[in-house]
């Protein structure tokens, strides 16, 4: 029985690799194209610009991947959580950067666990639950900040502009470490296998004695934490927080997850795929910008890429069913 399930997982995972491998190949082509078409594309300055633009969104995408993988579609409270955490980050920065980061982490875990309980234990529709929580979180943010920008009294430049070995932004190091750890956790532990089985079929999973509520609460905690951490990264840019800061984070994280081929139906794909998705989107975004294309064109191309990726995913899924 276990080997049957094991084979099933293996098969679905292998079938699912087509899209993410495609994304990797296209990313490589984009880099080559960028090198030949833009004068300063591979300069350290532009590469670090790409790294910065991928870090916060990538962290959120990794968190989002937990939710999608668990079969609960998306967490639509990420932007709100990140926005509130920019305010918490700026308000606690005078205690030092570690305290500020710890505060946003606690905040994210708290918001995540509430949603985990509502969705995992009470089985409320994840879209409705997370939109509702987003609204509550924004309300709290408005109440605390009065809509104002909070200026942090402290130094966040290690996180905002600091570089590891004066080469790679610290933000990127944090992002990659988080992504690799998360991927290892899902691929190699009982929690990860349970998460994937719940995503594939929650009813069977529950009957098979899998700890459904516990696993879902953990998934939402990770997602909440990652949203808050992304908020911390945004806030560290200029040691400031306000509620407008993380707008669009939900869409960006969802786009990264979807283009990487993590199945919207749950259970299929790897956490690390979200990283490739985020890198791919950051590359496209950067190329459109450095080519000086107008905003309308940028929007259309980005939207078209997401639609195309979803169509490809649907075609692959149909092929698998046959």
């Amino acid at each position: 029985m276990t080997s049957v399930i094991g084979d099933l997982i293996k098969q679905s995972v292998q079938g699912d690799r087509i899209q993410v491998n495609g994304i990797k190949a296209v990313s490589l082509l984009l880099i080559i194209w960028g090198y030949f078409s833009v004068e300063n594309f591979l300069t350290p300055a532009n590469l670090s610009a790409i790294m910065y633009s991928v870090s916060a969104i990538g962290i959120a995408a990794v968190g989002m991947a937990f939710i999608t993988l668990s079969g609960n579609l998306f967490m639509l409270s990420m932007a709100a959580t990140a926005a509130l955490s920019t305010i918490v980050f700026a308000s606690t920065l005078h205690f030092g950067l570690p305290v500020a980061l710890l505060s946003v982490s606690v905040l994210g875990i708290l918001i995540g666990s509430i949603q985990g309980l509502v969705v995992g234990a009470a089985r409320v529709n994840p879209i409705i639950a997370t939109i509702a929580v987003a609204s509550i979180v924004m309300g709290i943010g408005s109440y605390i900040s009065g809509g104002m920008t909070v200026i942090g009294k402290g130094d966040a430049s290690w996180l905002g502009i600091g570089k590891f070995a004066s080469l790679v932004p610290n933000q990127l190091v944090i992002f990659l470490a988080f992504a690799i750890a998360a991927n290892y956790w899902v691929e190699r532990t009982r929690f990860g296998r349970e998460l994937r089985l719940i995503g594939l079929n929650p009813i069977t999973a529950a009957y098979s004695g899998i700890r459904v509520p516990r696993t879902l609460v953990i998934a939402f905690v990770v997602a909440g934490f990652s949203a808050a951490l992304a908020g911390g990264l945004f806030a560290s840019q200029a040691s400031q927080g306000n509620l407008k800061m993380a707008a669009g984070l939900d869409f960006d994280a969802i786009a990264a997850v979807l283009v990487a081929g993590i199945s919207i139906r749950g259970g299929q794909g790897k956490i690390i795929d979200a990283v490739y998705g985020a890198i791919f989107l950051a590359l496209i975004g950067n190329l459109l910008l450095v080519h000086g294309l107008s905003f309308e064109i940028q929007l259309m191309v980005k939207g078209a890429v997401v639609v195309l990726a979803v169509i490809v995913a649907a075609l692959i899924a149909r092929g698998k069913v046959r």
Binding site: V38, E39, N40, F41, T43, A45, N46, A49, Y52, S53, A56, F234, Q237, A238, Q240, K244, M245, A246, A247, G248, G285, N286, L289, V290, G292, F295
Partner: peptide
Amino acid sequence: QPGNWDQTKASEAASALFTQFG
């Protein structure tokens, strides 16, 4: 480039413009 009245978007836009014009 548009920064959409948003700090993060503006920073991405400016990064690209610094890349373009150095």
